[in-house]
Amino acid sequence: MPKIEVNEARCKGCQLCTKACPKQCIEMSDTFSTTGYYPARLAKQDCCIGCGMCFQVCPDIAITVFR
């Protein structure tokens, strides 16, 4: 199953990936990252189709897509 990994140290919590995901697989964490943002995370298992849309919109190159 495809998946994404969010590099919390780079994520600035802009939320752009949450809207870009065609499957609504991404949500925002409710705990601060070490850099002081609420980082994005994969909301549910077996959701991601590995399309890469979230990577495209992520300004901070915080997302890696695996397929």
């Binding site: 140290a9 780079r10 600035k12 919590g13 802009c14 939320q15 752009l16 943002y37 590995g50 890469g52 990577f55 300004p59 901070d60 190159i61 997302i63 890696t64 897509v65 695996f66 397929r67």
Partner: peptide, 19 residues
């Protein structure tokens, strides 16, 4: 991994605002 940070970028974190 099907995505990666381009090699023409350094590892420096962008100072730009979120988004």
């Amino acid at each position: 991994a099907i995505t990666k940070r381009p090699s023409a970028l350094t590892e420096a974190q962008f100072h730009y605002c979120p988004g």
